[in-house]
Design a protein around this nucleic acid. Structure first.
Lengths: 218, 218
DNA sequence: TATAAAAGTTAGGTTAATCTAACAAATTTA
DNA sequence: TAAATTTGTTAGATTAACCTAACTTTTATA
């Protein structure tokens, strides 16, 4: 059984690797993301290497072993499932979910996570629009796309919001938008970047700022 | 902010005190309930005393200060709310809830617990029939009573089951019983202790063994 | 009530996770 | 390419939570 701290190191490593696209990370980088000193990371790296969770040689780059990836992905899965739960069931706002999910992600219980997943109807994305690994550790690869990035004439699905202020949310409701709604982008003004969109057969005009705060799945 | 371990010491102390009815506990007793050695408890006691969470003098008995009670009650509240949640929402059985609740009780988030409480509609008892402290730390004092202890002629409410085996649960359903149902005890045979009860206007005969596995509120 | 048993304490040690300070290797840049 | 900068490592300390072994105090009992 991994400790709370070991799980955090693996998760941080996975996040760096997913962000970097480079598949490896360095000691300082990892120390920064965990808010600890490089010396501390160095110690932990030795321990994780001993347990065959990371590949790492003195002065070399750090990568996750298959086993390490498995653990890290599971923690990420739990984190994102809990975020979704807090957001959808317990009325947490977009910016409140992270802190509590950081704690909940370390609860050990297979049944708990299975039930959580089922209760949420096996969601694929969390409230930030990030993909939730499934039970087998598979992550839907995708580029985080906002409504502003969608090609004219195509239809997309709203999966999350970036801005969670009440003024923005009220605006979202006014436009007739909700999670998982289909949105068709009718046109875009070159001059001021206003978008004409269609939701449930109703056309609306929204600004670039608005469109950039809506995450969609193309 | 109290550590996971400190919270566990306070909770264990509160449970001993609630069970003892004596309002105080000893080092060995506490060590047994926490599965650690008395020497360890001694160290922690000094720390908790320093933080004004317990009253304790060398070779004396241990009690909780008001502040210590507050923390302990809050942990107990969280534990029992989570048990109720796991049982009612996530289909955990009576005997599976404890282990996971032991972990969940240490999650720090006022909003989380408020929402949990609200979601469960402010329950007063957990699946074991134990009272859940409310937001202000108030615990409904009650004696854990089974259906067998109920006086003849009176009506009570089923609040929990002790035995969670499927054979017992099937029997419970057959008798037409469910959580929060009203049960009237019609009569009791002196000879073999069989009980005649009435649920929703229907009479049934149940054994002493059955009745002792149903927790009720008189 | 003296002594044996139980309960509680102390001293000294371990492990996990952290730190600082000094040093070493690798990389960048002038 | 040599010097400067960045990156990574080591050694030695610290803190929380635990331990064992030896000791002391309290309580129970012969």
């Amino acid at each position: 059984m991994l400790s709370y701290t070991e799980e955090n190191y693996l998760k941080a490593l996975l996040k760096l690797i997913l962000d970097n696209t480079s598949n490896e990370a360095g000691t300082n980088e990892l120390a920064n993301s965990l808010l600890v000193k490089p010396a501390t990371v160095n110690d932990m790296l030795k321990k994780l290497k001993e347990k065959d969770l990371v590949n790492y040689e003195k002065y070399g780059k750090i990568t996750l072993t298959l086993e390490g990836q498995k653990h890290a992905t599971e923690v990420l899965r739990k984190h994102r499932l809990w975020e979704t739960f807090l957001y959808e069931v317990f009325e947490f706002s977009w910016d409140e979910v992270h802190e509590v999910a950081e704690q909940l992600e370390h609860i050990h219980s297979v049944k708990l996570i299975d039930q959580l997943d089922k209760f949420l109807n096996y969601p694929e994305f969390d409230p930030h629009g990030d993909p939730i690994p499934n039970k087998h550790g598979e992550i839907k690869v995708h580029f985080k796309k906002t409504l502003f990035d969608v090609e004219i004439g195509t239809t997309c699905k709203m999966v999350a919001v970036k801005d969670n202020s009440s003024s923005f949310l009220q605006y979202v409701v006014k436009v007739g938008l909700g999670l998982n709604n289909e949105i068709k982008v009718i046109s875009k003004q070159d001059y001021d970047a206003l978008l004409v969109i269609e939701v449930n057969g109703v056309e609306s005009i929204v600004s670039q700022k608005f469109a950039e705060n809506i995450f969609v799945l193309a």
